[in-house]
Design a protein around this nucleic acid. Structure first.
Lengths: 153, 153
DNA sequence: GATGAAATCCGAGTCAC
DNA sequence: GTGACTCGGATTTCATC
């Protein structure tokens, strides 16, 4: 992964801001010719500096307006129990984030559902049924101050 | 916010998957004419069902490879203290998420920095200096199992 | 070895139906 | 909602530094 030039970082910045920018617009914004801009941008994708371009769907529009954060503690801290948990959790469609962390929890999850009652159903049917789970702490999100903000660089 | 048709949901799904789809490609994927697809898509943007299209920048490529989750407890639970905290936190460039939650914490934060030492600097200079903060619990992310997964609907 | 200019081709966006 | 038409941008090639 080679170091990025000022121009490359600028392209990344603009594409993060608006992924629908045409190549012509992008070229103007970063002060290079369209041809150069096109090549640079493709290279950034190929090198994995940009992975995808995603439309940000309003969660409420697709019945996923309720956000819940969950802290999980496993029974035993063996490699097997972690692997089992991660495998089991992978299929959960409601799951947005899953992070192995150091601290009072083993995992922190971010989950989207339609309503609280849907979370409760999920809580009893899926979460406490996950392998090796000792404790689950639920944090209902009351207000989203900032959600998935773009990177500043 | 009127209900979405099967076609509209399909457009959302595809644009979430790949925001660079041309209108022609998108039309083919959802089985309508390009003209129709174009109007539908515009309507979806205007109604706010899609907010933006964003390039997903690889955090490590821009020196933000370390992810940290933070739980915050405020001193006093007054409307003023919450407002003050939210205002103060808004300017933090490293902040990706900030959620007011119900449970053992008042706020949960998601933060990206280059390295742990950068977080420590931030921890002492910014976090514990935020107004009305009683307690901060830090969860360094050891492994990102799932990060910002697309919505399933 | 990367750049910008030009040239071709294809899709965006608009219209009438 | 569809089909056609026009204009502008995407993408490639090529000469240049």
């Amino acid at each position: 992964m080679t170091d990025l030039s000022r121009i490359d970082r600028n392209i990344l910045r603009h594409l993060q801001e608006d992924g629908r920018l045409t190549n012509a617009e992008l070229a103007k914004a970063v002060n290079v010719s369209p041809a150069t801009c096109h090549r640079r941008t493709q290279a950034l994708f190929e090198a994995g500096h940009i992975t995808t371009v995603r439309g940000q769907v309003n969660p409420a529009s697709v019945d996923l307006g309720t956000l819940v954060m969950v802290g999980v503690v496993l029974d035993r801290s063996t490699p097997e129990s972690f692997a089992a948990f991660e495998k089991a959790v992978d299929g959960m469609t409601e799951l947005l984030d899953c992070h192995l962390v150091a601290g009072d929890f083993d995992y922190l999850l971010k989950i989207r559902v339609k309503e609280m009652k849907d979370f409760n159903k999920m809580h009893t049917k899926m979460l406490i049924a996950l392998p090796g789970v000792r404790q689950i702490r639920t944090f209902f999100v009351l207000k989203e101050i900032k959600e998935n903000a773009p990177l500043k660089f």
